[in-house]
């Protein structure tokens, strides 16, 4: 097993990586079923399930009625009684219709019953802005669910991770909520062949640096990396951490980075107030890494308004690469 460099790395889109993960899981385990609206012959609103219905049939790739609450609850009940459902919300926004089953049932059944049962449920949430679909189809609601003990909430940012994390979610005995940014679906990247898992609850350092720690989630990881490249040209060496999991959050990777750089910028698309960045910031401020902070912590999050329709407005309400560059410069150069 000597080291070798593959001549060409296989690339898949993010959506294809999800489909490959589901395909692998369904081929390996009859208990794995897909449920969601228009995921059968239509292939899913974002063509994520694609042609899986032809391979596994309508018994395992199940079009639900437009009944988010009922459908989500059926998935909870099925998970409780021996199946491994993967439930797709057509848009993460529609989870609002199913919050009862997610928050009051799936997240709590195990605890309420003193550990007598587990809910091995995977839910997928196409989320985020950038599609011009406006306020009810563009939200990033991961912090809502991240607030609920009993759930695990992940935001894979790459094709490789989304495949590995979906398979890890299926191995997990507890409910795992996967937030998939819709703009990432077409992003291509290296995806290893075959079965592998990417751990839930572990952040990834996407770029090592010494001057500032940028902790980003989902699509913001890519914007942060682009910002870091620009900043490198100006002599600022930014470390970019892909948080990957909102709950349980990887404290140690973030803290080690902050101890090293002394500066923290959080970048996330969800509304800034009470969002994921608020949790990261507070976690750092409460830790021993506080003593290493050499500048105020900065959060870049979604604006305090619904996502608007007009494309320029839509861009303006979520952090963009120049915003990150500017914020990092302010922090590193002691302007704030």
């Amino acid at each position: 097993m000597n080291a070798h460099t593959p001549t060409a790395l296989r690339e898949l889109s993010y959506a294809e990586a999800i489909r490959e993960a589901m395909d692998l899981a369904m081929a390996a385990d009859d208990r794995v079923i897909l449920m969601g609206e228009d995921i059968g012959v239509y292939g899913g609103a974002f063509q994520v399930t694609g042609d899986l219905v032809h391979k596994y049939g309508t018994d395992r790739v199940m079009d639900t009625p437009i009944s988010e609450l009922g459908g989500a609850g059926v998935a909870v009940g099925a998970a409780l009684t021996g199946l491994r459902p993967i439930f797709e919300f057509q848009f993460s926004d529609f989870a609002a219709l199913a919050m009862e089953q997610i928050v009051n049932q799936a997240a709590k059944v195990r605890y309420m019953l003193g550990g007598a049962v587990s809910v091995p449920l995977v839910m997928r949430f196409p989320s985020g802005s950038g599609t011009g679909a406006a306020a009810q189809h563009s939200q990033s609601l991961e912090a809502w669910l991240g607030h609920v003990p009993g759930l695990k909430v992940v935001q894979p940012s790459t094709p490789e991770d989304v495949k590995g994390m979906l398979l890890a979610a299926l191995e997990d005995p507890d409910p795992v909520m996967i937030f998939e940014h819709k703009i990432l679906y077409k992003m291509k990247g290296h995806v290893p062949e075959g079965y592998y898992t990417t751990p839930i609850g572990k952040a990834a350092i996407r770029r090592a640096g010494k001057d500032v720690s940028i902790v980003a989630t989902s699509i913001m990881v890519h914007k942060a990396l682009a910002a870091a490249e620009q900043l490198a040209g100006e002599g600022i060496d930014a470390e970019v951490i892909d948080l990957r999991t909102v709950r349980p959050m990887d404290h140690e990777t973030v803290l080690a980075s902050v101890r090293k750089t002394g500066r923290l910028v959080c970048v996330y698309e969800g509304v800034k107030t009470l969002g994921v960045g608020a949790e990261i910031s507070a976690m750092v401020a409460e830790s021993d890494a506080f003593d290493f902070l050499d500048a105020p912590i900065v959060r870049l999050g979604g604006a305090e308004c619904p996502v608007p329709y007009n494309p320029e407005l839509e861009k303006a309400v979520v952090p963009q690469t120049p915003d990150i560059v500017e914020a990092v410069k302010n922090v590193v150069k002691g302007r704030i």
Binding site: R31, I33, V76, G77, L80, L83, N104, Q105
Partner: peptide, 18 residues
């Protein structure tokens, strides 16, 4: 939760059938 068990029962029935 009033009505909380209804979809769960349907899910259990789905498991039994599947």
């Amino acid at each position: 939760i009033v009505g909380g068990g209804l979809p769960i029962a349907v899910g259990a029935a789905l498991s039994a059938k599947r």
